[in-house]
Simulated scan of single mutants.
Amino acid sequence: MSTYISCKGGILMLIFRAWKTTKDGKRIYAKTYGLKAFPIWVDDDSKKESDKDAEKDKE
């Protein structure tokens, strides 16, 4: 399930993950906190950047 919200900079998307990785590289699992998943907001720009990287790889 994803939720989209339009904002000035683009579109924000809410995704759910069973774990999240901290800045030091450790994984935190939602099950440890009694949850099924963590909600994470992702902006549309991150998707565009990955698409640009894929195009560069093709060249």
Rank of each mutant, 00 (worst) to 15 (best):
A30I: 03
D45I: 11
K23M: 06
K23P: 01
M13E: 10
E49I: 14
K47W: 08
G25Y: 00
P39S: 04
K26N: 08
L14M: 12
A30K: 02
K56F: 12
Y29V: 05
W41G: 01
R27N: 12
K23H: 04
I15L: 07
G25R: 01
D43Q: 07
A18Y: 08
S2M: 13
I11N: 04
D53F: 14
F38R: 07
G25T: 00
I28Y: 00
D51A: 15
K58W: 10
K52A: 15
I15N: 03
G34Y: 07
K47M: 09
D45C: 09
Y33E: 12
K36L: 10
R17A: 07
D45S: 14
E59N: 11
E59P: 01
I11H: 03
K23R: 08
M1W: 06
T3M: 12
S2A: 14
F16C: 01
I11R: 12
L14H: 01
D53R: 15
T21N: 05
K31H: 07
I40F: 05
D51S: 14
T32Q: 13
K58S: 10
F16A: 06
F38M: 04
L12V: 03
M13L: 09
D53T: 13
D43S: 13
A37G: 01
T21P: 01
Y4K: 15
S50R: 15
K48Y: 06
D43T: 10
F38Y: 13
L35Q: 03
I11S: 03
I15W: 01
L35C: 03
T21Q: 13
K8R: 12
I5A: 10
D44T: 10
K58R: 14
L12I: 05
K47H: 08
R27P: 01
G9Q: 08
K31C: 06
K47Y: 10
T21M: 14
Y33Q: 10
D43F: 07
D24K: 12
L14K: 13
M13G: 00
I15P: 01
W41Q: 01
D51E: 15
S6Y: 05
W41E: 02
K26D: 04
K48L: 14
